[in-house]
Amino acid sequence: MDLPPQKLYKYIPPARIDILQNLKIRFTQPSALNDPFEFNLLFSEIVSTQQLRDHYEKADKQELILEAIKELPDDQRALFALVSKEQLFQMFEQFISNMFNAGKVNDIHRDYIAPLTPKLKEGMYEGLNKIIGILSLSATPISPPMWANYAENSTGFVLEFDTTHSFFNGRRSEKDEFYHLRQVIYDDRQPSATMMDMPFDTFVLKSKSWEYEQEWRMLLPLDLASKKFITDFGDEVSLFDVPASCITKIIIGLNARETKINELLEVLVASSHFDHIDLERIHKGPTGFKLERFKKE
């Protein structure tokens, strides 16, 4: 896994100065992001007929039979007690082998497995949407499309974060999906044949059309949010505490209004938590944006 650059950036519209005022930042559920294909589950079916057949061949038939009998009512279960286990297993093996031929596997798959795929996808997406929040950051602070799309046409700000801060390094194990930064993979993939074949990078996979964002992201469980509320539009918002010490710089947009700049400065000088933060402002260079130092008054 690649290490993130030491600095990453969050583009914010001018109204989001409250991130600094309250030191809380939103981790957004997939359905509220601007890419409608976030967490797209790239598989065509749950399991293939061959995988279904292989699973049956490898299954412990005796254990399956005993578990099925345990689920029966007492009177029916008593009937099976009249025969020996050897006879029972032999009887069921013959019955299942007659049922579970190639044609029957195809029928079972068509009638029962295939119809479950869309329902399973929907259920999995709804489940992920309820439990996972995403903080999206960029590797560049001077992307004109990013300033236009996420900082309200360059009227907003960019927050610079120190990725070595403990806030971004809380991973509990190598398999932990949460509490650490991960680079987004940009790839136009076709769906896998089955869910079992699907690559396990769904949380960081986006199409190449988003490659200009140079995104890194961190996931957190939404149930750990320090504040939750529902907007007037019905959107669920989950805010997490963000330490001021992980913010190292604020970059003012090219078209930022003086009133918003003054509001930002008031927030910064009001608390010693922000003494370490540098200020810069975007300007037009000969071929693109450039950064110049901005003095705190």
Rank of each mutant, 00 (worst) to 15 (best):
V267P: 11
I69G: 04
K249S: 15
L3V: 01
K58Q: 13
N106P: 00
G156N: 11
T231R: 07
G127S: 15
K284L: 15
K70Y: 03
K227C: 06
N34R: 08
L291G: 07
Y150T: 05
G288Q: 07
Q76F: 04
C246S: 14
D107I: 09
S192N: 09
I230Y: 00
P191E: 10
E263L: 12
E71F: 00
F157R: 10
L135N: 12
R182A: 05
V105T: 08
S271C: 05
V158S: 12
N34Q: 08
L239V: 08
N169G: 07
L137C: 04
L79M: 09
L264S: 09
Q190H: 06
T117G: 12
K10I: 07
F203K: 00
Q90G: 06
L279E: 10
I17V: 13
P30W: 09
E152K: 14
V105S: 06
T140A: 08
F92I: 11
L205K: 10
Q183V: 00
Y150N: 07
E152T: 13
F95I: 03
I113M: 15
K121R: 15
K175Q: 10
M1P: 02
F233H: 11
S84Y: 02
I46E: 09
A193H: 13
V267A: 09
L279F: 07
D187P: 00
N106V: 03
F157T: 07
I132K: 02
N40S: 14
A68S: 12
A225F: 06
E38V: 09
T287M: 02
G253Y: 10
Q62E: 13
D241S: 13
V204S: 03
P5E: 04
L72Q: 07
L159A: 11
K296E: 08
T155G: 06
K85S: 01
F274C: 06
I69W: 04
L224P: 00
V83I: 15
F92E: 03
Y9H: 10
M146P: 03
F167Y: 15
K70P: 00
L23M: 14
V267S: 09
E213S: 08
F92W: 02
A59M: 13
W147A: 08
V184T: 05
S154N: 14
I108D: 08
D188H: 06
A225Q: 07
M198N: 03
L52T: 11
P73L: 04
A114K: 15
D275C: 08
R16I: 01
F240Q: 09
